[in-house]
Design a binder for these strands. Sequence first.
DNA 1: GCCGTCTCATGTACGTCGTACAGTTGTCGA
DNA 2: TCGACAACTGTACGACGTACATGAGACGGC
Lengths: 223, 223
Amino acid sequence: MAKRSDVTRTRLSRDAIIVSAVSLADAEGLEAVTIRRLAQEHGVTPMAMYWHFNDKDSLLDGLAEYLMTAVRLPAPGDGPWDERLRAVLHAFLEAIRPHPAFAGLALRRILAAEAGLQLAERVLDLLRQAGFAAGKAAEVGTFLMCAIVALVASDPTPGPWPADDDRDQLVRDKRARLASLPPERYPNVIAAGPALVVCRDSDEYFALNLDLLVQGVRGIQRG
Amino acid sequence: MAKRSDVTRTRLSRDAIIVSAVSLADAEGLEAVTIRRLAQEHGVTPMAMYWHFNDKDSLLDGLAEYLMTAVRLPAPGDGPWDERLRAVLHAFLEAIRPHPAFAGLALRRILAAEAGLQLAERVLDLLRQAGFAAGKAAEVGTFLMCAIVALVASDPTPGPWPADDDRDQLVRDKRARLASLPPERYPNVIAAGPALVVCRDSDEYFALNLDLLVQGVRGIQRG
DNA sequence: GCCGTCTCATGTACGTCGTACAGTTGTCGA
DNA sequence: TCGACAACTGTACGACGTACATGAGACGGC
């Protein structure tokens, strides 16, 4: 593995750690992100991490912050509020979508990062424009962000881990399990079968349910 | 602590373990649910757990199944599909709401339990009635369930753990952090402040966003 | 040139976790 | 009475997060 001890041995840095934690989580899942593992990948003692992070939890904070910082908010511009809301939520979605393994970390940490505050500010602003009172806007806004996180975390398609063979096997098993259900009790589940275990088209899945959310906001706004 | 070794010392059972795991998670959070801790509460060796569960993951499966089994689906009845959809989603929400600590476990395990299949069947059935094709129904249905989970997991109000004092302190800190933001950059965040860190009225929060979801389904159904 | 001081990393050690593997008990039908 | 099987014990291992004490390199001031 990429020990830094060969030749270059640059200084450890908080950002470098985060970056390798990100790719580790993407490649092997969040449970593979370990103080010891990260230290090893940087050719360094586990305890060296504690110079840059108070504890593991603040490392996870760092991961969440990484997510939020990746959000590319659209220019404030004009146009109907619902289209702009959709654009903002879409930006959030696109930022976390590449990292389903730890998107869930953002759930409780959005407001902890600068970038998250900006996102929240934009969402709340648009909701106010739509006519929501401050309290309602907060409630709806909170849920919208969490729903976006749930959207990417819920993509049933498994990530690159575990190994290819095991993953295929898992998918096959799940499919078989659904297919072998009693058809008179679960006709719709069986009909939906394949779509439930793997997303045939993530883009469509995300777009459809993003629409659902925005239309939902319009729905409750009217009364 | 409730050691079973006094007098009664009944046989260990899968259900009994699940039940104590549930109350442990409710009281101290999911990370307090530990093979060793559960064994101790039943006055038994950790390894005794492995007679009833393959491994910790299947214990968590059991927790998720517990959630799904708690769903009290309304009678199929008649009426507009959207009202019935709301009722079904509400039933799901009410089932998991008492257990925010491990509601997230249900995300990937809904279809693993009998009760989850029934819930999914009902949701898909209603979506088909609403005019969605099988594929779309699967995508929307999947997201709706996940969104409900996210709804209860996102209630920012912290649970009964950590200890009261620490919890109050945490809430105070968060509030102070939001209040001290530059008002010209984050007017809406500051205005929404209190509502963002703690839910003043969970019932309203849930009802509002449940409406959002149902209205959203109506919105994308029309075109 | 020498020397505190500050930054960053090491080394050792502890307690907790999940769990593999082998052995022991209690119960019960034949 | 006796095996067979179900339920549980005992010991041990490796991985985890991290407390605490120590050590090295850089750097500005004397």
